[in-house]
Computed example of a mutant assay.
Amino acid sequence: MDTFALILTVLVALGFAYTNGFHDSANAIATSVSTRALTPRAALAMAAVMNLLGAFLGSGVAKTVSEGLIQTPEGSKGMGILFAALLGAITWNMITWYFGLPSSSSHALFGGMVGAALAGGTTVYWSGVLDKIVAPMFLSPLIGLVAGYLVMTAILWIFRRANPHRAKRGFRIAQTVSAAGMALGHGLQDAQKTMGVVVMALVIADVEDYGDPIPTWVKLAAALMLSLGTYAGGWRIMRTLGRKIIELDPPQGFAAETTGASIMFATAYLFKAPISTTHVITSAIMGVGATKRVNAVRWGVAKNIVIGWFITMPAAAAVAACVFWLIQLVFSA
């Protein structure tokens, strides 16, 4: 039974990685597709490959997820907590995907972990949740907004005397590089979150210890599922990011992607903080758009997205708690 529970939980974790991929694929490529720098299928293929490569660039975020948020639960009850956390995250991903809202898969996972832990009586490391999750949830969009504005302002000043049509062609080519960097950063951040959950499952099952290196098969499985999900594409969310917030041109798309990728790499390597790629790229698009004129950004759409950000963690936590109680009810009957 313990082996079956482990296998089932690992499979669900990989299922989460898949939903993360198609839910968040828009983060890396929506701007490139909307500006016609890349065709949709070419963009998705490139993003899938870069996600795969990015997954092998570090492990700091995985360590934060597996050790820094909740106390590792034990036994079959512990595996049930982790299983419920993942189902809560997947459920919220599917709901927000259906409505085309670019909410954070990362915060859905963290909310699921906290909700399931509370329902199961496991200790939540609130200082870790505050420092590694809540604080970056507020800071990363603010930094993305300001940095996007500044990067776009710098581009406008540097190319102020350039031929507009020639400059746009050049930035359309440059977007191939910036979109690849965004996808690489997405793989670095989001594949590690699944790795962290799988490592926690292996520790609960007494197969691995936290001091051990992350097994290669865990890295490869998480990376492949994220890449497969990315290639499947999240067209509903892509339309929201690429068109509904603001109509982007190639220089704006390049500025937003460069800003987002830079923030993701900096937070992964300097702070080992699992930030939301959704929050970063969405706020960067808003900052870039505001350089055109403030009312160029469709702030009504932006408001709905921000509201979605704030309800993601509690909503996923509530679903995860209900799943855990249902599991307990079934197995105690």
Rank of each mutant, 00 (worst) to 15 (best):
A47V: 07
A48H: 13
A48Q: 12
A48C: 06
V49Q: 01
V49L: 06
M50Q: 08
M50W: 13
N51H: 13
N51W: 15
N51D: 03
N51A: 08
N51C: 10
L52M: 04
L52G: 06
L52Q: 04
L53S: 07
L53E: 10
L53K: 12
L53P: 08
L53D: 08
L53W: 05
L53G: 05
G54P: 01
G54W: 03
G54H: 02
A55T: 01
A55Y: 03
F56R: 10
F56H: 01
F56D: 04
L57Y: 02
L57T: 11
L57E: 00
L57A: 09
L57P: 00
L57D: 04
G58K: 05
G58V: 08
G58Q: 05
G58R: 03
G58N: 09
G58D: 04
S59G: 06
S59H: 11
G60V: 01
G60N: 12
G60K: 13
V61F: 00
V61R: 02
V61W: 08
V61P: 03
V61Q: 09
A62W: 05
A62T: 03
K63H: 02
K63F: 00
K63T: 01
T64Q: 02
T64D: 14
T64F: 06
T64S: 02
V65D: 04
V65G: 04
V65I: 14
V65S: 05
V65H: 07
V65F: 02
S66L: 07
S66Q: 15
S66G: 13
E67S: 06
E67V: 07
E67K: 05
E67F: 00
E67M: 07
E67T: 06
E67R: 08
E67L: 13
G68M: 12
G68V: 00
G68R: 06
L69A: 01
L69M: 04
L69C: 04
L69S: 09
L69Y: 13
L69G: 07
I70W: 11
I70P: 06
Q71S: 14
Q71I: 09
Q71C: 14
T72L: 11
T72H: 04
T72R: 05
T72P: 09
T72Q: 15
T72W: 03
P73I: 08
P73K: 07
E74K: 07
E74V: 12
E74H: 08
E74S: 10
E74R: 03
G75I: 14
G75K: 05
G75E: 10
G75S: 07
S76Y: 05
S76V: 02
S76F: 08
S76E: 14
S76A: 15
S76G: 12
K77F: 08
K77N: 15
K77S: 15
K77I: 13
G78A: 10
G78D: 07
G78P: 14
G78R: 02
G78T: 01
G78E: 03
M79D: 14
M79R: 09
M79Q: 07
G80N: 15
G80Y: 12
G80K: 14
I81V: 15
I81E: 04
I81R: 09
L82C: 13
L82W: 04
L82E: 13
L82S: 14
L82K: 11
F83I: 11
F83G: 10
F83D: 14
